[in-house]
Write a protein that binds this DNA or RNA. Structure first.
Length: 291
DNA sequence: ACCCAGGCGGGCG
DNA sequence: CGCCCGCATGGG
């Protein structure tokens, strides 16, 4: 148990950083008039609660955290050390990107736990953000370990999920993805060492994570970007596909492979950040087919 | 009622 | 390879 704070340098939009569908296991409370923002999240080690006021990010911890590991957790999750002006310089290639950056200035790509990200993004397939978050909350409350003196629980480990039946997982919001969750839990608590993927490059790590049944090209890219710090990952979901086709290809249908190629040439080494701004801006514009 | 959601694996040609 | 289909479920 403890409490500390750190000062954020550069633009930081905490609300859009966590609401933009990258971390899916957060609880958030909004302050009045947008002046403060409070959040909490469960990890495998404890619960972190944090609040942002101006440039001061204060936070508290419990469980196995100590002052040093809690600080590292915060800096990592929110990529506090990212140089946003330099990133914007690299992805600000056109008017659409400029307006996205203007609208969501300070939105960070967050870096989350590999198992958490794997579980959450398997749940994300053919699903919507609101319901994914509800399912994740249910899984935490059902399978996570209790923490003394806290209403929240730890994020359930692969071992704990492995102990659940497909029927139980289905009932707790996983739907048809339950069999994938089960397989991922078996795999990640057994032959696949998630920590070892940090030492692999993007291509090799992605190939390794795709051995999990239910993890295809898009989910693998999300895990690479949102957990393993691979900024060249460019997840292409329905929104990103649509916005790319609309903005850069005059509405013509393009294959996923071509769009990956396009992104890697346009935003080399920073595809992940470009993708997050494209995705979130496209959604805010409700850039649908029938809009 | 209807459509869609941060897709995927399997089956087909 | 590319294409097409079904899939649990609930929010808009």
């Amino acid at each position: 148990m403890g409490r500390d704070s750190l000062t954020i340098k550069g633009p930081f939009d905490i609300r859009n950083s966590i609401e933009s569908g990258q971390p899916l296991a957060f609880h958030a409370d909004y302050g009045h008039k947008g002046s403060a923002f409070a959040l909490s999240y469960s990890t495998s080690k404890g619960v972190i609660e944090a609040a942002l006021k101006g440039k001061q990010l204060s936070y508290s911890w419990n469980g196995e955290y100590n002052s040093r590991s809690a600080r590292e957790e915060m800096e990592r999750r929110f990529r506090i050390k990212d140089n946003m002006p330099s990133i914007y310089e690299r992805i600000s290639t056109d008017e659409f990107m400029e307006s996205a950056i203007l609208a969501y200035n300070g939105m960070r790509v967050t870096q989350n736990d590999p198992w958490e990200t794997t579980l959450c993004f398997i749940l994300s397939q053919f699903n919507n953000i609101k319901r994914i978050r509800g399912s994740v909350r249910m899984l935490i409350n059902t399978y996570g370990t209790e923490i003394e003196g806290s209403e929240r629980k730890l994020f359930p480990s692969a071992e704990q999920i492995k102990g659940a039946s497909i029927e139980e997982l289905m009932k707790h919001g996983a739907g048809f993805r339950a069999k994938y969750i089960k397989h991922a839990a078996n795999f990640c608590s057994g032959s696949l060492d998630l920590d070892s993927l940090y030492r692999k490059d993007y291509e090799d790590a992605k190939e390794a994570i795709m051995e999990i049944e239910g993890v295809g090209d898009k989910v693998a890219d999300c895990i690479m970007l949102f957990a393993y710090n691979k900024m060249e990952a460019f997840p292409i979901d329905t929104w990103v596909k649509r916005v790319l086709e609309t903005v850069y290809f005059k509405g013509r249908k393009k294959r996923i492979k071509e769009l990956h190629q396009f992104a890697s040439e346009r935003w080399p080494g920073m595809e992940g950040y470009a993708q997050q701004y494209l995705f979130w801006h496209a959604r805010s514009l409700k850039l649908r087919r029938k809009a």
